[in-house]
Each structure stands twice: as structure tokens, then as C-alpha cells.
């Protein structure tokens, strides 16, 4: 009896603690009343891809170059890209159409893995419901474009890594360019020097060659009649 009674009283104490603490302790009442109060998502949430742009202007700062690697990588083939053209119908490195069908996307993140320009990234937005199940769920380019600041906001660590990587890439390209320029400059200098030397040599050799040429010409003229019968014979 005493054992059972003790157990019952202990259990009652636990439930009473839960009941009372639910009024003032957050961890005893973890409910988030969703429509009024949005649930917080942590920075490792991934849901659907979006396109990152740098700076202020969406179109100018777009990182995407419409290389269509993500389109090819997408397993359920939910990405659709058309390359943009300028006024002369010349293709430019920017998508004119970039559609993601969110009803098909399976959030596999392969497009993110494959993108060489750090352009496509995963969003943490979860309120994707729509009244129209066809057009409404098809997310187009302008809806997909989101600023780099937004990316920093939702995935701070990852965004910083990406930024560092891009900066490193630019720095590398810069040094490479500099090296190339230096090399080119040296090469040009060398070329110039060589050309100058050649010119000088040529100038110096000019007089000499003219004399020999004349001699040769006269020799050839002299030889020519002798040669001709031989060639005729043969």
C-alpha cells in the first residue's frame, strides 16, 4: 500500500509541477500559436532554392549566368532556364526566364552543389501555400531573386563562407591577371627590344646586303644563259 501510495503521490507531484510551471516557464509550454506567431526556423533549414544577387539592383547584381548546370543537375527537373539576349539578339550571360516549380522541387540541394557561381542557394521560407496550384506554385525569376543581405540573414555562416570564397576567387583572379599583365608587359618589352635590335641590325646590314645583292644579281644574270640550255636539255 505504502509503495503504491508513494508512487501515486510522486506521479501526482510530477503532473502538478507540469501544470503549474506551464504558466511561467517557456520550456513547459513550447507551443507556438502559428498563424499569430511565426515559428522561428534555425539557420540550417533548407526548403526551396532562391537566386542570390549582389548590391542594389536585382538584374545587374545577379550572380546567375544562365549556364544551365542546375537545370541539368535537377533530378525532378523542376528548373527551367532561358538565356537572355541583348538588343542585337546576341546571347548574354543572364537568364531571361528562371522558373522553379515548387510543387516538383524535392529540396535535394543538388542545384546548390553544382552551381559554380554561388548563385543558387536554399531558402528557409516555409509558407509556400497558394490558391492556384499551377501558376501559383511556379516561382519565376523575379520572385526567386533575393539579396545577399537576405541570404546572410537566413543562413549567416553559410553566406559568410560563400562571400569569403567569392572574395578569394576574385583576389586570385586579380593576382593572376596582374601576373599575366606583368608577363605580357615583359614580353612586350622584350619584343620591342628585339624589334629594335632587329631594326638596328637590319639598318646595319642594309649597305652590306645591297652590295652582295648586286653581285649576286650580276652573277645570276651571268649564270642564267648557261643554265637555260641545261634545263632545256633535261
Amino acid at each position: 500500500m505504502s509503495l503504491i501510495a508513494k508512487g501515486i503521490l510522486q506521479g501526482m507531484a510530477v503532473t502538478a509541477k507540469n501544470f503549474i510551471q506551464s504558466y511561467y516557464k517557456k520550456e513547459r509550454l513550447p507551443t507556438v500559436e502559428y498563424p499569430e506567431e511565426k515559428s522561428t526556423v534555425n539557420q540550417f533549414t533548407r526548403n526551396i532554392p532562391f537566386l542570390v544577387y549582389d548590391g542594389e539592383d536585382e538584374i545587374e547584381g545577379m550572380r546567375c549566368t544562365a549556364c544551365k548546370l542546375c537545370e541539368k543537375a535537377c533530378p525532378p527537373q523542376c528548373i527551367y532556364i532561358i538565356k537572355d539576349t541583348d538588343e542585337n539578339d546576341k546571347p548574354i550571360k543572364r537568364p531571361k526566364v528562371f522558373d522553379i516549380d515548387s510543387s516538383v522541387c524535392m529540396s535535394c540541394q543538388l542545384c546548390v552543389e553544382v552551381c559554380p557561381f554561388e548563385s543558387i542557394r536554399m531558402d528557409s521560407e516555409f509558407e509556400l501555400s497558394n490558391e492556384n496550384r499551377f501558376e501559383g506554385l511556379l516561382i519565376n525569376r523575379d520572385e526567386l531573386l533575393k539579396s545577399n543581405e537576405y541570404y546572410h540573414e537566413i543562413h549567416p555562416i553559410e553566406a559568410q563562407e560563400t562571400d569569403d570564397r567569392i572574395a578569394a576567387k576574385i583576389a586570385e583572379a586579380e593576382t593572376k591577371k596582374k601576373a599575366r599583365e606583368e608577363k605580357a608587359r615583359l614580353a612586350a618589352e622584350a619584343k620591342q627590344a628585339a624589334a629594335a635590335m632587329k631594326a638596328a641590325e637590319e639598318a646595319a646590314a642594309e649597305t652590306e646586303t645591297s652590295a652582295t645583292e648586286q653581285a649576286q644579281q650580276s652573277e645570276a644574270k651571268a649564270e642564267a644563259p648557261e643554265d637555260n640550255p641545261e634545263t632545256k636539255n633535261t
Partner: peptide, 12 residues
């Protein structure tokens, strides 16, 4: 009461 015991809000 049951909801509070189970760390829920109950009907509201």
C-alpha cells in the same frame, strides 16, 4: 487542465 499537465495550451 489535462492540456496544461501535458504541456499544451488546450482549447483557446
Amino acid at each position: 487542465g489535462l492540456a496544461r499537465i501535458q504541456n499544451r495550451l488546450g482549447p483557446n
